[in-house]
Amino acid sequence: MSVPAIDIDGLTKFYGDVRGVEELSFSVPEGELFGFLGPNGAGKSTTIRLLLGLLKPTDGTARILGVPVDDRAAFLDVLARVGHIPGDPRFYDDVSGRKTLDYFAGLSGDARRDELLDRFPVPLDRPVRAYSRGNRQKLAIVQAFMHDPRVVVMDEPTSGLDPLVQQEFYEFLREERDRGVTVFFSTHILGEVREVCDRVAIIRGGRLVAVEDIDDLLARSGKVVTVQSPDAIDLADFDFPETIDARIDPDGSLRLVTSGNYDALVDALDGYRVDDLEVRETAIEDVFMHFYDESEVEREDDADAADVADTADATDADADADSRDGESDAAAEPSPADAEESADA
């Protein structure tokens, strides 16, 4: 494992005075499934565009398979072995899926096209204009993998996919990883990272917050328990070793982040009347709040990050597309399935 598949070193992009990303450094060895996690507007798309040479960095470099992105000629050869799914894949509306793939095949090959279409079928002979969001996303998957790339870079690849296809896609990504393909994808959904990634880089407000093994991250993330009770809740009752964070929300309900020991939790709740109880997956916001606010300075940064997330497009020329924001927000909501799964634990 001499040359990393992806190597980002001091990568910085400013749009005038506005920070896109600043001083990003991390690398991804070959054959790893690597997640790139951050809220909308954190600079994920900017990083990916810099990595692929669509944007020119203000400072720093990015390399794929050892070749710096600014070495134009050599990097073109590398791109033959790279697949990409953009954040909001836009094809040619009036062109059918088949002709679209024919076109891309002419530019970079399509050795695996049929196999991928079996797995992610789309209405090939209809114009892309008539495609649903999910079908467009499947077409994007096929075009990204059909030339059998060694490195695949994807920007929120599962947005728009229905849950079954999403699972199929995760399975596919694991298989690709096992074949030695390096998979790098951005997401704002912690559950997705948890489900498929080996390691994750966390970005916030254009800065790298952490690069972690998923196992380490999981050990530190836990689940969020919310309890509504007419009684006054005493935080001391919930101070277990597994408690990562406990606080009383303004409406008087308890908000607990815990990495386990539900027996103790149930015992502690025995002393209260419980009107409502919710156990859900930790959202990315919780991770940020509970693991990275170690100092007051960091706390202020958090507020900044939240602002950035709220007004992604206004504050960040990275411009995670408007259209995607709506869907992203919906996807960030914990699903009932997640809550059930938690309750079982």
């Binding site: 073109l76 891309f104 530019l107 970079s108 597309a321």
Partner: peptide
Amino acid sequence: DRQSVELVLVRPVS
């Protein structure tokens, strides 16, 4: 404008 360029220029096309 339409961003389809992101699907073309990530291939070996200068």
